[in-house]
Amino acid sequence: MTFNHPSLDAVLDFMIPADHHRGMPGGSKVRIADVLPLDVTEQTLINLALHLESIVNAHGKELRFLAPQEFWGIINSHRQVTDSVVRELGKWLLMAYYTDPRVRDSIGVGARAPFPNGYAVHDGDLELLEQVFERGPIYRKIANDK
């Protein structure tokens, strides 16, 4: 499921904005709750987003009125405290985002499981081995190997 918390949704969309031209959803539109382990709750993520929001607010700004560049300008100017928050939130976002069927379709791997159809892979040109073969043995032969 997706979340419906304005601060968290705003932060997730700043992290991965929608790309409608490519059919890529924004970060707030993927099912992060599905990838969370038992010890990480929705509230954990909301708290992380609120922490970032508090830094934005300390600059006299409001999250909902910020342009993306402005948001990242503020967050990156406080890297000592924001890096770990962005990293933690980002981990769960990436896990949900890159397993989302719309995203996988858009990047060309398809929304399906690899099994049973698999994928076509270029065989490659084995004639490239000619010069390797012509060089002759490169392993050490062992004298008196019984």
Partner: peptide, 28 residues
């Protein structure tokens, strides 16, 4: 895909924000 994203972001080869999609596609 997920490994590309996780390692790319961790190593700052893929940014958050507007550039994210293009940077992902240049690596994946």
């Amino acid at each position: 895909p997920l490994e590309t994203a996780l390692s790319g972001v961790a190593r700052r080869e893929i940014d958050w924000g507007i550039a994210h999609h293009d940077m992902f596609r240049s690596r994946f």
